[in-house]
Design a protein around this nucleic acid. Structure first.
Lengths: 149, 149
DNA sequence: ATATATAATTAGGTTACTTACCTAATTAAT
DNA sequence: ATTAATTAGGTAAGTAACCTAATTATATAT
């Protein structure tokens, strides 16, 4: 049991390191790309554009951090701020045309890579991996893995 | 296939975020603790103490980064630098007594958590997870996941 | 009308790296 | 013995991706 725990510790460390690798495209940083993905996803799903707070909880980062990333993306002309008409405190974020096509382009390239990974692993192992990652994620959340130390 | 790729992308992102444990003990940072683990592990395994370059390749960080972490640990009296007698360029790193007992203490606490995870998953799924993570890591390495974009 | 709560922003960290450059020591070639 | 190239490690400065605390603007509740 202890041996398995050590193996798992080791595998997780290695995996984390490798999976952590910068997906960067056209000078956009990892954090910016993930931000674009979420905006794209949520704005396609919902009628109203996503707010800063919603982005904060979706990404599990603080709202000041969201603001910073959005500032860069806005300056670059890929997203725009929209003031909510009903509540003056709320700022909504939308992709510009440039942003929408950029996001689609990047998403496609990244998806291709994952398709390769799924092909490499095969159907069965891919399913296994997805469900195991899910289980471990649930475990982490339930046991507040991070907070306890 | 595309759907599975998207699921995997999503699971990996979530997992990465959660597995990004902030392990810190007695004021030692994550990077410092991992450094201690490697020194402990390698120095127990080999006759000669590990060098800065070896630490660099073991941790997959640059040697200036290793130097910085070692500086802090040395100032704190948990590791010491040893000049190699045969090659004056080489600096070897050893745990001090304080460092050795600290490392054992931390290792034990962390191992406990992983033992819980292994118990939660069960034997079979733990093995599956270890081998799947290994396979994906290998895939990442082989396909230079990071460099290609 | 006033106090309180909420949304976003600003200012200023922190951690865990990196890159660019440097010195000292070793090795190889002349 | 000298010069050139390489290797090991270090210094300084910078970056990505976060964070907390404080502030501003607006909305809501008493």
């Amino acid at each position: 049991m202890e041996e398995k725990a050590q193996q798992l510790l080791h595998s997780l460390r290695k995996f984390r390191k490798l999976a952590d690798i910068n997906l960067s495209f056209n000078g956009y940083k990892r954090s910016e790309i993930i931000m674009l993905f979420i905006i794209h996803q949520e704005n396609n799903k919902n009628e109203k554009e996503i707010t800063i707070s919603q982005l904060s909880s979706a990404l599990k980062i603080t709202s000041p951090s969201v603001t910073q990333v959005i500032n860069v993306l806005e300056k670059d002309g890929v997203v725009k701020r929209i003031n909510d008409k009903e509540d003056g405190r709320i700022v909504r974020i939308a992709l510009t045309e440039k942003g929408a096509s950029l996001t689609k382009e990047i998403l496609q390239k990244i998806e291709e890579k994952y398709i390769h990974l799924v092909q490499y692993l095969g159907d069965k192992k891919s399913d296994q991996l997805i469900s195991l990652l899910q289980e471990v994620s649930d475990y982490f959340v339930r046991n507040k893995w991070d907070e306890t130390n």
